[in-house]
Design a protein around this nucleic acid. Structure first.
Lengths: 231, 231
DNA sequence: GGACTTATTGTTAAATGAACACCAATTTAT
DNA sequence: ATAAATTGGTGTTCATTTAACAATAAGTCC
């Protein structure tokens, strides 16, 4: 094989860290590999990038094939390209993470018969390939992102309570001490990005909380006026 | 060509945004392309990744071949993989940026006969490929990085004055108003990361300033104790 | 010695962040 | 219907950080 040919003896893939939130824990959607290599191991959903497909498109496709969802939050994080990261050849992978509303994920659609399951991020064990490293990198990125841009709402239902929002932040940031309830509420409400709905939480065995909605348009407007989100 | 084969009809490259600082402006090292495509256009230095070469190694190699430098600051930023970003085929590129001391760059070493030149980042015109986009992304990353980690020192000589340090920050951040001199000094000195040397600036036609050195070991220690750099 | 240039230093007011505890509203059990 | 249990909601104070701001000091050059 000539040197020039060997340059093309390689492929690239995307891997997608799909995050979800179940009300108390941050979760990641993993699939169990049905074939070698790493048969039986849990892994990040991913696929080779089609020859005439953009990277972002490939990541969206992986997400849609697994969850049926389109148009959700998706961000590229980094390329992973260690020479021996894939036992069958030279494959570099571009890592993405996406944020979905866990309730939107309804069992596995047809195209992916493989078993897919939510795992608590804190309890993920040894994954296939270098997927632990990818997961950690994406988690780190998410921790940062969620403090500087209002992406956390992507993980919550459209209507949520302030306690749910705070639990989300506590779950993602996983700080030694939980956020202070009063300070958190003060801060988030002072941004004027939440709309208080004329509805209350239902079906709880205690005082029901007010429901809020995130106002994305207001956020865009504020940003254009120099505002920057910060928690 | 079978579908499987076509997956391998692709290549990956690295492109390196090499930043330097000349005392007043942030610069980027560009090369002028000697061959098609984009012959004659300025471009980021880059190369295909060798089949058994790690991505970081390839970026280091590109840097060394151009500048003769090793062991300098280098960070991967992102993959760029739009289908038609390269006119001759499917090539995704992994973008890196590096920070070098501009005085260490001594004309072009033999292996790269191509013309390489420092350009003020603010005056860069239309580059080859999607290199303007890559440059902008890396610049944005650098702006953030320089405020949260002490990487700015990589662009300065080992001994520097506080004014030089501030000019570096002003040049990189390019804020509507320059940083306040007194506040900047207070902040940077309060971190206890700079060692005041028993030497003064020389060769200037005015009161010479004290020289300082960055103490990287102290920084590592402080970080392990929970410190985080912030300007 | 005088003119010139840049270096060095501190205070105050405003905004932000951190710490902290009690009453309110609802459901469930008796 | 009352009490117990559970979570929701709310303000103040103190400490810290940030922002704004100007006069004197130490050199060089003529």
């Amino acid at each position: 094989m000539s040197e020039i040919e060997s340059f093309f003896k390689s492929a690239f893939s995307v891997d997608n860290v799909i995050f979800g939130f179940d009300g108390s824990e941050l979760k990641v959607l993993l699939i169990q590999r049905g074939a070698a290599p790493f048969k039986g191991k849990w892994a990040l959903p991913g696929d080779l990038v089609y020859p005439n497909e953009n990277l972002d498109t490939a990541a969206e496709r992986v997400l849609e094939q697994l969850t049926g969802l389109r148009g959700v939050y998706l961000e590229q994080v980094k390329a992973f390209g260690a020479v021996n990261r894939h036992p069958l050849g030279r494959v570099i992978t571009i890592a993405y993470y996406s944020l979905i509303k866990i309730s939107d994920f309804n069992v596995t659609p047809a195209s992916f018969a493989q078993s897919a399951r939510w795992h608590a991020v804190s309890e993920v064990e040894e994954l296939a390939f270098d997927h632990n490293e990818i997961l950690n990198t994406c988690l780190k990125r998410l921790k940062h992102k969620v403090r500087t841009e209002p992406v956390g709402f992507e993980l919550l239902p459209p209507k949520f309570t302030l306690t749910e929002l705070q639990q989300l932040y506590d779950a993602i940031l996983n700080l030694p001490k939980k956020l202070d309830k009063r300070n958190f509420r003060k801060k988030i409400l002072s941004m004027n990005l939440l709309v208080e709905l004329p509805e209350l939480q239902e079906g709880v065995a205690h005082r029901p909380a007010k429901l809020y909605q995130f106002d994305g348009e207001k956020y865009e407007q504020f940003v254009s006026e120099g505002f920057s989100f910060d928690i």
